[in-house]
Each structure stands twice: as structure tokens, then as C-alpha cells.
Design a protein around this nucleic acid. Sequence first.
DNA 1: TTTTGATAATATGACCGACATAAAATGCCA
DNA 2: TGGCATTTTATGTCGGTCATATTATCAAAA
Lengths: 252, 252
Amino acid sequence: MPRDAEPRQSNTHVAREIAKLIVTGVWQEGWTLPREIELASQFEVSRTSIRESLSILKAKGLIAARQKAGTHVRERINWNMLDAELLEWTWAGRPSEEFARQLTQVRRIVEPEACAICAERGSDTDLARIERAYREMDAAGMDSRAYSEPDLRFHRGILTATGNDFLVAFGATVEAALRMSFELSTLNPGAPRKSLPYHRAILDEIWARNPDGARRAMHRLMDLTERNITSALSRRRNGEAMAAAAEREGDA
Amino acid sequence: MPRDAEPRQSNTHVAREIAKLIVTGVWQEGWTLPREIELASQFEVSRTSIRESLSILKAKGLIAARQKAGTHVRERINWNMLDAELLEWTWAGRPSEEFARQLTQVRRIVEPEACAICAERGSDTDLARIERAYREMDAAGMDSRAYSEPDLRFHRGILTATGNDFLVAFGATVEAALRMSFELSTLNPGAPRKSLPYHRAILDEIWARNPDGARRAMHRLMDLTERNITSALSRRRNGEAMAAAAEREGDA
DNA sequence: TTTTGATAATATGACCGACATAAAATGCCA
DNA sequence: TGGCATTTTATGTCGGTCATATTATCAAAA
């Protein structure tokens, strides 16, 4: 179910637009934003709506306001990059290679350990839910759209099974990573399906209640994912370079 | 510098109050909140202010609103527990043992790996900043208030040195954990200072550019921290049990 | 000339009342 | 009873006004 790129609700729409200006660096850290009244006329909404939008961005740590002094962009260190929406806004459209690298790096740190905890302490109900997600991935066949949704449920299921609210919250980050992978998979349609046996291995290890094995199995999946992403990115890079060359050829 | 427990700004104040009702389970998952007008009269602020407060909570994933249907508490899975303010609201006053356990568990997962990455790829500038924090911890002596602030900078410095924005964002979680430790340390004033040599060991390993050693050193610090927290919590439990017994004694 | 203190200017914070919109609830009709 | 038009209602948006906290200004004093 694709979320709308342009939500009709004006405050979320405006928040998204302003957030994009900030994360893309058009409005840099420390800079002061235009006055609320000016923002209101720029975005053609009321000052009330602007204020609600800004309060969303304040909540995510992107900006801070002081009376008379204005509203300024906070330094990156205060941005809550692990927030679902902020993640989406950041890579919206085109994930940078650096963003992909960092995302892969944190997943490597968190998911194998979560998987070990899941194998050790997940309830049978938890594991059954994970297995159901696996079956749906299997049933999806080569349809990578139908595959990606249970894929996310599989990973979320593992995080949930840990019983740790902070690891559960990390699901937002995993979701962003999977959506990015899915997006990039258009450059390599067969890739997602190749992860199925790796998921199978994880499932077997957690049913066997084998934490070390589960950790290793998840680690192997992370390796595969990283290979897929780097190859998709380099393919994209080459494709764009060739397109640019063709462009120059056409000009000459 | 202690943040104000009761911010004078009305919308953050109201947001905090409502958030507490939700995280403490007074308003449970799935429940529908009172109408905005009713909330306005309950909290004695205008509907505009209520709406700004609610938009903060929406941004953190705690609630969602639909026209006509009302505003409801979202399921925990959507709460962004890794958010700085939400963390603070959750343990405000009295950290539950479960909360402490989960917090310690994620730190164990993330910080040792971050430390290894820091040793491998942190710039000399990054490491110098970490060392400066260490020196200030040393200089603080037995004053656990003066100790805790550079302690946080030490850990944040390691996360920053990884160059990974998501690990940097994890600093909010570490901050919550350290504040909690600091709070609990009133039950055991000498405890914080005991962590100094462990920090020293970490510093030495990252200067030696030894990722494995750095990982192990951070792991040992996590062990110490966990021991301190569990002992403080059990002390608190015993203290309260004895107080309750004395209470019963007094009644009889 | 520099400092200090009163004063004015201004951007965010809060409030109000009205209308728009979407979706749930109602009730009518077949 | 079932489907469809209508009403109801809670959130969404708007414009305007006043409050409040700082910054900026400027004049008097050291």
C-alpha cells in the first residue's frame, strides 16, 4: 500500500516540504527560518497551519523556536534520524549512497543481536507470526511488491519477539531500509527473491532456539542485503553516467 | 543543567501531560481521546494550543487523528521510543525495572559496536574531543553531578565519531540511560566514579586504533553499568519494602 | 568614549470564533 | 431487510487579536 507522496492534509504536507529543505541542506544548520507569516504566504496556508507544521518538526528535533529571536535549524546531532517519517523524508525519491551505507551499518549492528534474543526468549506465538510472514514471502513468488510487505513483517516480528520496546522502535529504521531496497530492486528484479533461503535459515535457527546460529544466519542475510544494495547503487551510477554521456553526444 | 520539570510553554506542558497519561497506560492503546474541545477545557487552554500539543504527539507516533472519528492512541509498535523527549516522559520520576532492563539491553547491543567503529574510523579530532570529556570526568572527582555531564559527552563523542547519523541519533537513548543512572546513584553515591578506569581503558583502545579491544572495553563498562543499576534497583526495592513494613508497624 | 538603563520594536506564543471537510451515524425508501 | 441519500459531528483550516519574551535602539551618565 503506497503512501501518498503528497498528502492532502496541509500541515503534514507543509511539514514534509520544510523538512526536505532542511535534510537536503537547502536550509542549513543554525540558519534562521523565515518568519511564520512569511512561511504562511510562501506555502499559501494560514499561520495556524504553519505553526502546527513547525511543531511537528520541533518534535522531531529539526528546529527550535524562541520568542522574538525566530525559529532556527538545530544541529544534526539533535535530529531524530530514527524517526519513521524523518527517514522517509530523507531518502524520499533518491537515496544517497552515504545514506544507504549508514542504514546498512546500523542494521548489521542491531538485527543479528535482536535475532539472537528472539531465538532465546521469543514466545511460540511470536515465532509463529514470523513463520507466517515467511510463508507469505514464499507465496509471493517473483512479484517483488507482494514480497516486500511480508518481508518487513518478518523483520518486525523478530524485533517484536525480543520484548524490548527500543528494538521494536528500531522497526521504523528497518522499514526505511527495506523500502529503499525495494525501490532499488527495480534495477535488479530478481534480487529480493534470492533472500528467501536466508530467511528460511533464520527461521530454522530461532525455532531451534539457537541464539548463536540465529545471529549468524541474520548476519549472512545482512551480507546479502549489503551486496544487493551496493551493486544496485553502482548500477545506478553507471546508468546515469552513460545517460549523461549520451546526452553530451546528442549535444555535439 | 537540569531541564525544567514543568515547562512554562503551555503546548509542551500539555503535550507532556497527555504523553504521560498514555505511556503510563491510563489511556490505553486503541482508546479514543476526549474531543479537542473537551481536552481544551480539561487542561484550561485554547483548542489551538491543544492542537499544537497533539501534533507533537502525532509526530512521535503516540496518537493518530481522523476527521469525525476522533483521535486515538496508536499501538505501542508505532511509538518512537528512541525519541529524546518520549524517553524522558516515560521514566520521568521513577524508572521501572523493566524499562531499565530494556535500556541496558539496547546499550549493550549498540555501544560496543559503535566503539569499535570509532576506533577504526574516528578522526583524531573526534578522539581528542572524547579525551577532553574523559579529563573532565576525572576532574569532577566525587561530585556525581559534575561527573555525569562529561560522561554523556564521552559516550556521545564515540557515537559522533562513527560518522553514522543513526548512531548519533542513538545518543538520545544513551542520554536517558545516563540520566537514569545518575538519578539512581543517589542510592549509591560512590558508584559513578568507579566507572572512570573503564572509560580510561576505552580511551586507550580507541587511541590505539584497536577495534576489537575497544569493543571489549566498552562491553566491560556496560557490564559494570548493568551491575550498578540492578543493585540500585534492588536497594530501592528493599528500601521501599522496609518503609512499607514500618508503615504497617506504625498502623498496628 | 564607553557603559548602563529605559524604551521601542518584533517574532513567537496563545486565544477566539467561524467555516470547511470527511466520515460515521441516521433514517428514509424500495 | 438492504441500499442510498441525509444529517451529524469531530477534526482541519482560516483570519484576526492580544500576550509575552527578547532583541534592538538610543539617550543619559560615568
